[in-house]
């Protein structure tokens, strides 16, 4: 597969976007809104000119500020799917899809995205899911060499989203194009991409396979963004090989990671067990947090339970067996080896 190379600096209002990225396969950029994610796509597509930089697909230079090369967007062979799809409101579905096809027939695309029956309809008559399929069909009918997706799932309701996410993952695998997508949702990124980059205030904090970001988050932001608990405290060398962390609330936690000073204790919800009672020294888990049960949120067949400052994920059956109810007292326990320490 070809490799898209992007390395540039673009001053934005509050900070400068600085990025060096090689994309082959699917890469997802995640980050909070305002992190500069969309600007990355716009630079690659040629819609925004960075102050300095290089954008190239293998040997084909689309932008090289040093050599004063800047290919206009229409000659970059880039397929950009906009966040709200940017379908042409005055054109039918068929005319939208045919817009970039250069006169080639588009029936195959209408078929493939199941929008053949909508060929004569106008965008305002379509549902969110249909619009997304039209936008994808229109982009692919242009025969791009690189695919850029801006929040491809954000405009969809929760029900449609799961289904579309699955379809999209399959489509991306099938297309085998270098693809860069941006999203604010880590789960979407993990489901769609081979590699995930966390972008905060214009800089890439960490880039790696989704599992690696979860296993070894580089900092507190990456950890909390991937869905982990983050407990703030002060680390000091404890008994044996363990590090003891005094939390802000006064509790002590232990971690197998080494650190000193102000740290964040990272623990994923699925590493945390929940119990109604606690017998000291009867558990291999060293860390115990006693707290009130806060919210209980069902996610598929699991329940996310908040115990004091910690979110735990237990099966729906366990939640029922324990008769967990908000307001009651419970104990959240997790092993020292289930934690990661990140500097704050």
């Amino acid at each position: 597969m070809a490799t898209l190379q992007a390395d540039f600096t673009l001053p934005l209002r509050a900070f400068a976007l600085e990025l060096a990225l090689g994309v082959s396969g699917t890469v997802a950029l995640v980050g909070p809104s305002g992190a500069g994610k969309t600007s990355v796509l716009r630079v690659i597509a040629g819609l925004v000119e960075p102050r300095r930089g290089l954008v190239a697909l293998d040997g084909e230079r689309w932008l090289d500020t040093e050599r004063r090369v800047s290919v206009p967007p229409e000659r970059r062979r880039v397929g950009l799917v906009f966040q709200d799809y940017a379908l042409f409101p005055h054109l039918s579905v068929r005319a939208n899809v045919a817009f970039g096809a250069g006169g080639r027939p588009v029936d195959a695309y209408l078929e493939r995205f199941r929008i053949g029956h909508l060929a004569g309809a106008h965008p305002r008559e379509l549902s969110g899911g249909e619009r997304q399929r039209v936008a994808l069909a229109r982009t692919l009918a242009r025969d791009p060499a690189v695919l850029l997706l801006d929040e491809p799932l954000a405009a969809l309701d929760a029900h449609t989203k799961t289904e579309v996410r699955h379809e999209l993952a399959e489509l991306l695998r099938e297309l085998a194009l270098p693809t860069l997508l941006v999203t604010h949702d880590y789960e979407d990124a993990a489901a769609l991409a081979d590699e995930v980059g966390v972008l905060v205030e214009g800089r890439l904090r960490q880039l790696g396979p989704p599992a690696e970001l979860v296993a070894r988050p580089k900092d507190a932001f990456v950890a909390s963004f991937t869905g982990a608990n983050l407990l703030r405290g002060r680390a000091r060398r404890g008994d044996g090989a363990l590090t003891a962390i005094r939390l802000e609330g006064g509790d002590d936690l232990y971690s197998a990671d080494e650190a000193e000073g102000d740290v964040g204790v990272v623990v994923y919800p699925w590493e945390v067990s929940v119990a109604r009672t606690h017998v000291p020294d009867a558990d291999s888990a060293l860390n115990v947090v006693r707290g009130q049960v806060g919210s209980l949120v069902e996610v598929a067949n699991r329940v996310r339970v908040r115990v004091g400052p910690v979110t735990a994920e237990v099966t729906a059956a366990s939640a029922e067996r324990l008769e967990l109810a908000s307001g009651g007292v419970a104990y959240a326990t997790f092993k020292a080896t289930g934690t990661r320490l990140v500097p704050l």
Binding site: V78, G100, R142
Partner: peptide, 21 residues
Amino acid sequence: DADLVAASRTLGAGPVRTFFR
């Protein structure tokens, strides 16, 4: 909508074609 203009450009239409279409 500026995004529609941008979309037209990325779909291969130059500034003139984008203006008229």
